[in-house]
């Protein structure tokens, strides 16, 4: 008797151990929270050094991006992300890592067609749809302000 695709789907679900969502959620909360708290600390430090809120926000983002890039290049970030999951993926750290990691990976195909061409293969969709959403938002903002 041949098993139907829908029956096989149920068998597969039973045989496949799911990820531990509680533990994953807890880790993401703690590590992601720690990254955000670190960012807030940086922001406070920049503000107390006399910077404007705008400059402080920008510098926090830049610091996190540079730190992530260095940790990615050192081969540490992916090990942290394996434990942290969405904790490192959601903040700007995830974005920085998604640009640096393909740039490194495809360096063997050359600076132009490797590093540069492949750099945005993961982050590209975020840039495309992020920019598109900004245009739509901007349009309505202009219309109703």
């Amino acid at each position: 008797m041949k098993i139907s695709n829908s029956e096989y789907k149920k068998m597969t679900a039973r045989a496949s151990k799911p990820s531990d969502r509680m533990l994953g959620g807890l880790r993401a909360f703690l590590i992601g929270g720690a990254i955000c708290a670190f960012g807030q600390g940086l922001s406070d430090a920049f503000l107390s050094a006399g910077l404007s809120t705008e400059s402080a926000d920008l510098l926090v983002m830049l610091t996190l991006i540079v730190l992530t890039s260095v940790l990615t290049a050192a081969g540490v970030f992916d090990k942290l992300a394996k434990v942290a999951g969405a904790g490192t993926f959601v903040p700007v750290t995830g974005f920085a890592n998604s640009v640096v990691s393909p740039a490194m990976e495809f360096s063997s195909e050359g600076r132009v067609l490797g590093t540069a061409a492949q750099m945005f293969r993961i982050a590209g969709p975020v840039l495309v749809y992020g920019s598109a959403a900004a245009v739509v938002y901007g349009f309505f903002y202009w219309l109703f302000r």
Binding site: D78, L80, K82, F89, N97, P102, E105
Partner: peptide
């Protein structure tokens, strides 16, 4: 994904 990409 690239080796250093922080995915799970």
């Amino acid at each position: 994904m690239p080796l250093e990409y922080g995915g799970q």
